[in-house]
Computed example of a mutant assay.
Amino acid sequence: MKIEIGRYQQQKEDFSAFAPGAFPPEGIFNYSQEILIKSAEADRLIGKLDGITHTLPDVDFFLYMFVAKDATSSAQIEGTKATIVDAHFD
């Protein structure tokens, strides 16, 4: 898809000037229905996660558990053995 962002116009004073086209260009935001539905679902799930964090007594502990789980998964991928207890952060 070729998008024309503007064009040069010859001026009476014997120079050319760049004149930008309409913004946004026609057709640049034409997405399929499938993409729009997936985007709306992602927005909904992010909102749901944000809502859940408001009900947690300790958000830092909640995030710590995900970081510790990620650390143990990374250790297993690298071929070492680690547990969540081993992934203690100070």
Rank of each mutant, 00 (worst) to 15 (best):
A42M: 08
R7L: 01
A19L: 13
Y31H: 14
V67P: 01
I77V: 12
D50C: 07
F15D: 12
S39Q: 13
D70Y: 02
H54Q: 10
F62I: 02
I77W: 09
H54S: 08
I35L: 13
S74A: 13
K48R: 10
F23V: 11
F89G: 02
F62E: 01
F29H: 14
A19D: 12
K38Q: 15
E13F: 11
D50W: 04
N30Q: 11
P25I: 01
H54M: 06
Q11L: 13
D86M: 01
E4S: 13
Y31K: 12
P24W: 02
F61P: 00
D86W: 02
L45T: 03
G21P: 00
E34H: 10
K2W: 04
F66A: 07
A82C: 14
F18A: 08
T53R: 09
S73T: 04
M65H: 03
S74T: 08
K48C: 05
K2V: 12
S39R: 15
D70N: 04
V59F: 05
V59N: 00
D60H: 00
Q33T: 13
M65N: 03
F23I: 04
R7K: 15
A42H: 07
L45S: 05
S73C: 04
Y8G: 02
A71V: 03
G79S: 03
G21D: 02
L49V: 11
I37K: 14
Q76S: 08
F66M: 05
A71W: 01
I5A: 09
L56N: 05
G6P: 00
Q10A: 09
T55Q: 05
D70Q: 08
A87H: 03
M65T: 11
A22D: 15
G27Q: 09
P57N: 09
T72V: 15
Y31Q: 14
